[in-house]
Every structure is written in structure tokens, then in C-alpha cells.
Amino acid sequence: MARPSKYSAEFRSDAIALWRASAGRRTFKDVAADLDVNPETLRSWVRNADAPPAAAASQETEAERARLRADNARLLKNEKEWQLEREILRRAAAYFAREMK
């Protein structure tokens, strides 16, 4: 599962606006250094902002699918653990029921 971004949406949009305002005069590296972010991070923010809405929607869909796949894997793992716990408790209850007779 992807970790949440440490940068807010407002920060990202301000960074994109700063890059666009200085485009042609400053490099991604210069603007990123001022903002204390990785230049490739800034470049991907600008690229994603320039992408057509359908592409952005498909990226969001893929991210959601990846998150759901990770959740399913986690839940399946937990389900197996819970089945084992239930089996142990069932056997313990049967053992103690025999002891009580």
C-alpha cells in the first residue's frame, strides 16, 4: 500500500504554481531546492497536473486498485490467523468439556 504523502495538496499546487511562474528561468532542481523537495517529485507533480483528466482519473483508479489489493491481502492473512485461533479455541473447549465429565 502506498504511504500517504507528507506534502499537502495545497503545498503541491503552490509548488506547481511556483514552477510555472519561474519556468524558463529556473530548473526543477532550483525550485525543488527552495521548497526542500526532491526535483523528481516536483517534476512528477507538474507532469500529473498537466496530464489530461482521464489519465489522472485512471491513475487514481490504479492507485485505488492497488490499495484494495493490499487490503484484501491483509484481510486474507488475518482470516487465516483467525481461523487458526478459532480452531485452537474449539479444541480447547472440547478438551475442557471432556475434563468436566
Rank of each mutant, 00 (worst) to 15 (best):
R74A: 13
M100S: 06
R65Y: 03
R20V: 01
E60K: 09
L84R: 10
A56L: 15
S44A: 05
L18K: 08
A23C: 06
A92K: 15
R69P: 00
R43H: 10
A63K: 12
R12T: 00
I88T: 12
A9K: 09
A57W: 04
P4K: 14
P52G: 04
N48A: 11
K29R: 14
N48W: 10
A56D: 13
S8P: 04
P53L: 14
A17H: 03
K77F: 08
E81L: 12
K6H: 07
R3A: 11
E60D: 09
P52Y: 03
R3Q: 14
D71M: 15
K6M: 04
A70D: 15
A63H: 09
M1G: 14
A51R: 06
Y95H: 14
R26S: 03
R67G: 10
T61M: 08
L68W: 08
E99K: 09
W19C: 01
R20W: 02
A33H: 12
D71C: 08
R20E: 11
N48G: 09
I88L: 15
E64V: 02
D36W: 01
F96H: 14
R98M: 08
S5M: 07
P4C: 04
N72R: 15
S8N: 07
W19L: 08
K6A: 07
E60H: 06
E85S: 10
N72C: 14
R91S: 10
L68Y: 07
P39S: 02
N78C: 01
E10N: 04
Y7L: 09
R86S: 11
V31H: 01
Q83V: 04
V37G: 02
V31K: 01
S8T: 12
N38L: 04
R20C: 05
A51D: 06
T61S: 06
R25M: 05
L84K: 11
A93M: 13
K80H: 08
A21F: 03
S5G: 10
V46N: 01
D30W: 03
S22I: 02
A55W: 12
P52H: 04
A54M: 09
L84P: 00
E85K: 14
W45S: 00
Q59R: 11
E40L: 03
D71I: 15
L89F: 11
A54F: 07
A54T: 07
F96A: 05
I16N: 02
E40W: 00
R3N: 10
S44Q: 10
A92H: 13
R91Q: 13
A73I: 08
R90P: 00
W19R: 09
P4E: 11
R90W: 10
R91W: 01
M100E: 08
A17K: 07
K80E: 12
A66G: 12
S58P: 00
K77L: 09
L42M: 06
A9E: 13
F28E: 00
Q59L: 11
Y95L: 15
L42G: 01
Q83K: 08
L84N: 06
A73Y: 07
E87T: 10
